[in-house]
Design a protein around this nucleic acid. Sequence first.
RNA 1: ACCGCGGUAGGUUAAUGGUAGACCACUAGGCUGUGGCCCUGGGAGUGUGGGUUCGAUUCCCGCCCGCGGUCCCA
Length: 394
Amino acid sequence: MNDQRVKGTRDFIQDALLRENLIDKIKESYSLFGFKPIITPSIEYLSLYKNKAGEEIENQLYSFEDKKGEKLVLRPEHTLSKLRAVNSLQLPKPMKFYSIGNVWRYEDVSKGRYREFIQADIDTYGSEDPFFDAEIIQCIDFTLRKIGINDYTINISSRKIWDEFLEKVNLKDKEKEILRLIDKIDKVGEENVKLELERMNALSVLEFLENKEISKDLLKLFEHLDKLKINYVFNKKIVRGLDYYDSFVFEFISNDLKMSIAGGGRYDSLSKKVFGKELSATGGSIGFERVFELIKSKYKEEFSDQVCVISVGEDKEAIEIANELRLNSIRTNLFLSETNLSKAIDYCNKNMIRFAVIVGRRELSEGTVKLKDLKESKEMNIKKSELLNFLLSK
RNA sequence: ACCGCGGUAGGUUAAUGGUAGACCACUAGGCUGUGGCCCUGGGAGUGUGGGUUCGAUUCCCGCCCGCGGUCCCA
């Protein structure tokens, strides 16, 4: 009864190492582009999000009152926390930060959608130069390739195109609704969307979709992407659900999942709207959970480089050897003589530990220990003094 | 949020309105000299609360969790 997990949360045991490795790789890759870590609180005032998105937003947040009666939320994203933190900084522009951590949303749960999940963002603040927009895309492209994902299409569009168009045809007041429909075209089919648009008296939207003319803000971005040798497609149907984007937007769509695995865009007016201070910003994030699922299906457990020292009646010596290995950063397990040898070796097998070092009288009398390589199914006697260097070289 | 389906040890599953059983895994010993073994034991389960019943894991209802779909998705 008390052993049930909260809806939409998960325990990671078998997958924990793989997740940690993935996070490390993403951080490393973001760092290679000059992004620095920023860590912001997991809890924020509810009003922060209400200012940004209105009263209804509370339904989608994990909100609660603290003991003082203060209305708080578990952060549903990193964007606003980062923006607040960065707003007051006096650092050389542009300021480039990454953040990887848990976020929470009180939403319906289904396959691939959880209430607690990881978001991995990069953002560049304080510059309107489209080069930095291109850099965001380049960095995400680089990172995905680095973690072994390369079967996707980069789709790019701009909210400005739609703003200008809808202004021109007097549909600005229905912008939210229209963009939502555009976003759904590939999912529900053009016919269904057409019916809806007809009802709204907005059929001109479909004609506009056909028109491939590129706006000025995108032209500059595309030039940079070409220089960086990034492949992309211009796709007006990409609008992103978020209303805070106000310029270019992008999505990386996985070719086999047919789903978005990364996305982002420019949001120059958000800071002014929420904090009353001008700060241009552009950013993107990798959908960690989807990427994780993609990686996981390819992943096979292999022998780790761990070592297991097994004593056969020579505990004192075995302890010394194990400690020496640990001091040299070799990950080492230790079994003393109470565990019989075949069980200790079985343990190594089941835990994919590659090397077993058997410390017994026979070997010690010759100044050696026995080294078993469980992966290669080989064993050899090796001088105690050479053991460390041998293992370090593996 | 709504509709549909489901839930038996850690995992896979069997059975029944009347004693919940198996395999894998775990654990102890056999076992102080060698591999995904072997032998003998052991712990551990009907998601949860209520109802019907002499008796419910089985039938009924609420809730929880999961899966699929619709809505939504910063």
